[in-house]
Simulated scan of single mutants.
Amino acid sequence: MKHLTISLLLLALFAGCRKDDDPGNVDNIPGLGGDDWVKGPVDTWIIDSMTTPYNMTVKYKWEQGELDPTKALVPPHEAKIIPVLSTIRRGWIKPFEDEMGALFVKRYTPKYFVLVGSSQYNMDGTITLGTAEGGRTIELYTLNDFRVNWMPGFVPGDSANVKQMFHTIQHEFGHILNQTVSYSPDYKRITVGKYTANWVNYTDNEARRRGFITAYSMSGPDEDFVEIVATMLTEGRSGFDRLVNNVTVAGGDGTQPATARALLRQKEAMVVEYYRNSWGVNFYNLQSRTRAALVALIK
Rank of each mutant, 00 (worst) to 15 (best):
S119Q: 10
Q120D: 11
Q120A: 09
Q120S: 11
Y121S: 11
M123F: 08
M123C: 06
D124N: 13
G125P: 07
T128G: 12
L129A: 12
L129D: 06
G130S: 03
G130K: 10
T131S: 15
T131M: 15
A132K: 14
A132Q: 13
G134M: 11
G134N: 15
G134D: 11
R136H: 14
T137P: 00
I138H: 04
I138Q: 10
L140H: 03
L143S: 08
N144K: 06
D145P: 05
F146S: 01
G153C: 09
G153Q: 08
F154R: 07
P156E: 03
G157I: 14
S159K: 12
N161F: 13
V162I: 12
K163C: 08
K163D: 08
M165P: 01
F166E: 00
I169F: 09
H171L: 05
F173W: 07
G174A: 10
G174W: 02
H175N: 09
I176S: 12
L177V: 00
Q179C: 13
T180P: 02
V181P: 02
Y183D: 09
S184H: 04
S184I: 08
Y187F: 15
Y187K: 02
K188W: 03
K188A: 15
K188P: 01
R189H: 14
R189W: 07
I190E: 01
T191V: 13
T191D: 14
V192E: 09
V192P: 02
V192H: 09
G193P: 03
Y195E: 00
N198W: 03
N198S: 11
W199F: 14
V200W: 14
N201L: 15
T203S: 11
N205K: 14
E206I: 03
E206D: 10
A207H: 01
R208H: 05
R209D: 00
R210E: 15
R210T: 04
R210S: 11
G211W: 03
T214M: 09
A215Q: 06
S217N: 06
G220P: 00
G220M: 01
G220W: 00
P221M: 06
D222R: 08
E223R: 05
E223P: 04
E223T: 07
D224L: 00
D224N: 06
V226E: 07
V226G: 02
I228Y: 08
A230I: 15
R237D: 14
R237N: 10
R237A: 12
S238F: 10
G239L: 01
G239M: 04
D241L: 12
D241A: 08
R242V: 14
R242F: 12
R242C: 14
R242N: 13
L243W: 06
V244W: 00
V244L: 07
